[in-house]
Simulated scan of single mutants.
Amino acid sequence: MGSSPSSGFFHYRNVLIVLNVFYLIVALILIGAPAAAIASAKFTSVPIVAGVIASGVFLFLVAVLGLVGAAKHHQVALFFYMILLGIVFIILFAVSVAAVAVTSSQQQTLAAKAWNASSLKTQKEIQTLFNCCGFKKSDTSPNRKSCLDLKCCTSTVGALKSNSTEKPSNISTNSPTTPSHGAATIHPPQYCLSCPGCFDKLEKEIHKAFKVGGGVGLFFSFTELIGLILTIYYRNRKDPSANPNAFL
């Protein structure tokens, strides 16, 4: 026994409502997660936190627009919802494909640009969180002075001081000192060359983040495509409870 036109109308409406409730939950997570990170003092970078929260707010507004349009079969709300959902789908799909297809060398280049563009405060937070120093271990920039309080720096320097048969003054603050007779090099504390670089330590995690992030983005983009197609069908259907002589 075939389904009636009215059952198809309510089917499309219910699916759209469920889909937009799902978007609302994701939006609330995007808004709440940065707040939790700030509260725990794990990460307080204002630009990154603001960007994630802004994305969550935008998705929240789009989801509310979709819920209103689906629940009331509001033609104007559904029209703008279709436009916004189509734009988000194109952007998210393009970014997700790029994230999945990016090579390891491109990942390092992008990570280096992001590191250089970040503030010293953000860099220190990353270094403290992951116990690493600088972008690469070969980096000997003056910014490595911010690594002095890291465990990987203080423990190694202390061990070098206690194990060295020479006076502590041999640990220079200006340039590396190489003891004679093939002894190991004692690096100046401000360089903390015993600490791994943050990219060296997080390279596998960054690679995984690109792939997982791209995969999740593709999943969300296809849910948006499904939502867009459902909205088009739903918008062009007649509401069984409305005046049959009213214009669709």
Rank of each mutant, 00 (worst) to 15 (best):
K161V: 09
N170L: 10
L160W: 04
G182S: 14
T156N: 15
W115T: 06
K167A: 13
K121P: 01
N143A: 12
F135L: 15
L148K: 09
P196N: 13
S180E: 15
P189S: 05
K137I: 09
S164M: 10
C152N: 07
P179E: 10
C153E: 01
S141E: 03
T156E: 08
G158D: 15
L129S: 06
H181E: 13
C152Y: 07
S146F: 06
Q127P: 02
S194K: 05
C152I: 07
T156D: 13
T178E: 12
Q190H: 04
T185A: 13
P188F: 04
F199W: 12
G197S: 09
C192F: 02
T140W: 00
T140Q: 08
T173Y: 12
I171T: 05
T173R: 08
N174Q: 08
C133W: 01
C147M: 12
A183M: 13
T177D: 04
Q123P: 00
S155M: 11
G134K: 00
S164T: 11
D149L: 14
Q123E: 03
P179M: 11
S164E: 03
H187K: 13
T128A: 11
Q190K: 01
S146L: 09
Q127E: 14
K124E: 12
W115G: 00
G158F: 14
C132Q: 06
L148T: 04
A114W: 01
S118W: 04
K137W: 02
G134E: 05
S164K: 02
G182L: 12
T185K: 13
T185H: 10
T173D: 09
K167F: 05
C147N: 01
P179V: 12
S162L: 15
C198G: 04
P168A: 03
E166L: 14
K137S: 11
K121L: 06
S169E: 12
G158R: 13
A117G: 15
P142Y: 09
S180G: 14
R144H: 03
T165D: 10
Q127R: 04
P142V: 08
C147D: 01
C192R: 00
E166C: 07
I171G: 00
S146N: 12
C195E: 10
P179Q: 14
I126M: 06
S164D: 11
Q123R: 09
T173L: 08
W115I: 03
C147V: 08
S162T: 15
T165A: 13
A184K: 12
E125M: 09
S175H: 13
P196H: 11
W115C: 00
L148V: 03
N174V: 15
G134H: 01
C132Y: 01
C152M: 09
T140A: 08
N163G: 14
H187V: 05
K145I: 13
H181I: 09
Q123A: 08
N174T: 14
L193I: 11
L120H: 09
N170G: 11
S119D: 13
K124D: 14
C132V: 13
C195H: 00
P142L: 06
K145A: 14
S118I: 00
P142M: 03
S138L: 14
V157E: 03
F130Y: 10
K137P: 01
T178N: 11
S194P: 01
S138K: 11
T178V: 15
L129T: 03
S175P: 06
L160V: 05
G134S: 07
N170Q: 14
K145M: 07
T165Y: 06
T140M: 10
H187W: 06
D139S: 07
